[in-house]
Amino acid sequence: MIKLVNVRKVYRMGQTEVEALKDINMHIAAGELVAIMGPSGSGKSTLMNILGCLDRVTEGTYELDGRLVSDRDERDLAKVRNRHLGFVFQTFNLLPRMTALRNVEQPLLYAGVSGRERRQRAEAALQRVGLGDRMHHRPNELSGGQRQRVSIARALVNRPSIILADEPTGALDSRTGEEIMGLFQELHADGATVIVVTHEPDVAEHVNRIIRVRDGRIVSDQPVASPVRAADRLRELMQHAEGVAAGESAASPNAVGPTAAGEGATAS
């Protein structure tokens, strides 16, 4: 489904050149749930933008669904982004003046879905992410987690085959992040290919495969034996919070830590 061969990406700024990606080779099959990990500045977002057809490779080839992306023209790529890809950003990137429903309708507008069907599909997508009661709220009337749910609803409303999420939990607390990862796991269970960029090991524990990047190169690519199920961990978190409340002490900020350790044998 996704195939990168000898991909280089160079940013040119006047005289200086930044080589953000150096010789990336990668293959992701349909239906995978993958995390791309790495420290800040390692090229994760650059890679994501290329996968999302928002940016082009400097060298090498990117094959998506058996076709070279470099062979497609601008209009064609817009269509691919609209129908086959769904984006989730760290900062949500919702249109601030529109309600959640209108935001989710936007991709359908570009797909030419009209009137009633568009509205029904947008409502269904919002219900799916658990925001059936917040459809007419604007982004500034929603919490961070709710905003990210809206943006996930927007990403999945056109039933894309691939969902790309660049640090989707980066701006959220761990509990909300857990819920978001749970959503991705559900989408994956329904057959979507989901690629999540993150630098948080806790988040990466939820996937089936972790690709590590450093300085623009892939340094490891390993399967995860038994991924954490977000639903399980959420239940533990709830119990833990109750326990803490019973013990009359404030919830510790790294409450997830011990539970994760207790969960045991996940990826390193």
Partner: peptide
């Protein structure tokens, strides 16, 4: 940028 990411073309 957002509109382009969710599928708006040049002509849109």
């Amino acid at each position: 940028g957002i509109r382009k990411a969710i599928g708006a073309s040049y002509s849109d």
